[in-house]
């Protein structure tokens, strides 16, 4: 079992506004990912061994680095990532065809800690952050409150599935085109639930401002919480020290000590 392998694209389909879901099938037995972990994904020229000099990165020098993507979901045909077309790399990803190859490193990083006994999970996804918490929501199978916020309706993805996973699905959009108008954090601030606040555990991924607001809500209401963070990274395995975030215990690597951190430990 290796955490660095070649994979074939089993499916790559557009989804909503500027989103896509890519399914890859590893060429060898892969390590099973857990919710919260991520993959570093790079392009691949094809099968190795075509030249005398085995070159794994030939002609693939721009864009250069692999990119980190949250593990989204496991299916019959492989492992999925949810991506948003944002820059040069993801624009190329959108155009990748079924059957073409990828270099994949992973699953990497830690995962969402288990739910404390007697707690009710509250899952929060902001924009593309839904990718990181999706498989966790699936695992909680009907026991979690799921809050999902985006800028507009077109960015909301996989709503039927999320509804199926949720005890309740609560939606907000910045423009009010679906669900409540405004920030998802405002909905959470006003969220009553059925249990005392101390019995909820937050699992969140989204824009930095959203997670910082969640931190203050968690502190006010004495809630436990975990957030998954993102930073620019080069290696994904703890060597380059490019992806650190500031925490109460100093710089921590998103790729190694994270991506999931205790919400109270991150210095926003």
């Amino acid at each position: 079992m290796s955490r660095y392998f070649r994979a074939e694209i089993a499916e790559n389909r557009p989804l909503g506004k500027d989103y896509g879901i890519l399914t890859f099938a590893p060429s060898e037995t892969a390590v099973e990912p857990e919710a919260g972990q991520f993959y570093m994904i790079g392009r691949c020229a094809g099968k190795n061994g075509v030249s005398l000099i085995p070159v794994s990165c030939r002609d693939l020098r721009d864009p250069l680095l692999k990119r980190p993507f949250s593990f989204f979901r496991k299916t019959r045909t492989g492992y999925q990532i949810l991506y948003r077309i944002k820059g040069k790399w993801t624009a190329m990803m959108r155009d990748m065809k079924q059957g073409s190859s990828l270099h994949v490193l992973g699953p990497l990083g830690n995962s969402y800690p288990p739910l404390p006994k007697g707690h009710t999970p509250v899952i929060v996804g902001g924009g593309l952050g839904i990718a990181s918490v999706f498989s966790l929501a699936e695992k909680f199978a009907g026991s979690a409150y799921i809050f999902y916020g985006t800028r507009t309706t077109e960015e909301l993805v996989m709503l039927d599935e999320l509804k199926g996973f949720a005890k309740r699905l609560l939606i907000s959009t910045d423009d009010g085109s679906c669900g409540a108008k405004g920030c998802i954090t405002d909905m959470i601030r006003n969220f009553g639930g059925e249990d005392p606040a101390g019995m909820y555990t937050l699992y969140a991924c989204g824009p930095r401002a959203m997670m910082a607001a969640l931190d203050s809500i968690a502190k006010e209401r004495g809630m436990k919480g975990y957030v998954s963070l993102e930073e620019n990274m080069a290696c994904g395995i703890g060597a380059c020290l490019g992806c650190v975030v500031k925490t109460v215990t100093g710089h921590q690597r998103v790729c190694k000590e994270g991506p999931v951190f205790d919400i109270g430990e991150v210095l926003w």
Binding site: L64, N232, M233, G242, C243, V244, H251
Partner: peptide, 15 residues
């Protein structure tokens, strides 16, 4: 401790 993030950015065929 090193520098504050962001610490890495990709540029044309380099970083």
């Amino acid at each position: 401790e090193g520098n504050p993030p962001p610490r890495i950015v990709e540029t044309a065929a380099g970083m």
